[in-house]
Design a protein around this nucleic acid. Structure first.
Lengths: 108, 108
DNA sequence: CGGCATCCACATGGATACTG
DNA sequence: CAGTATCCATGTGGATGCCG
């Protein structure tokens, strides 16, 4: 199957789509955390070392707009964020990124 | 083998290393182009639809500092940029990004 | 060809404080 | 717990023109 990996127009190529999703500082971290298990706002904040509430809010909003994650309120009013199917489909990519980063961090 | 995919300190995790490399708007595109073949400045500029000379200069500089690409001057004074081994090791990641982007661009 | 110099606009993120 | 509201600093990229 031929996939259009090349840019097909000014300012648009498949790579860039992914890059602009995973290039936001905290997005890949958030997705990585949610791959372990669904979490609430504050747990997610704790698990993402150093993110501010503001940026977490913005990131979650962006990821929701892009249908990568879902927000649901439980019966006890607790909030849960979890990945959509689209979000889960990023798992191999996220893992590859973590692996590449672990192996090459010292070389950069 | 256990790889440290998790953040090990404030402001540092393997995922973030990769994300900050591939998250710059044109970096993945440049790497993708150079995976096809080595190129000079202007050819690379033409092949990356829409990048400005300034940003291309900055990107190449950053990628060089990170040992992802190399710059060499040929005997005829022509310039060639090509990937280092570290840069080439990004190929599967770049391809996965292009693939994911092609498959999910419409859903975002 | 292979850039550099400017200037400018906006995106992104950090810090801090406050709220129901 | 789950956020909002401000303010501010820097990052990042675009446009344009010039140069050897």
């Amino acid at each position: 199957m031929e996939l259009p990996t090349w840019c097909e127009a000014e300012d648009w190529c498949p790579i860039t789509v992914t890059s602009q999703l995973l290039g936001r500082k905290w997005h890949p971290v958030i997705i990585h955390r949610l791959l372990q298990k669904p979490m609430g706002f504050n747990e997610l904040k704790r698990e993402s070392n150093g993110i501010s509430a503001k940026v977490l809010t913005e990131s979650l909003e962006d990821l929701r707009k892009k249908k990568i994650i879902e927000r649901s309120e439980m019966d006890d009013n607790a909030v849960r964020y979890n990945l959509t199917d689209t979000g889960k489909s990023l798992e191999p990519l996220i893992n590859s990124m973590a692996e590449w980063g672990a192996e090459n961090a010292d070389k950069l």
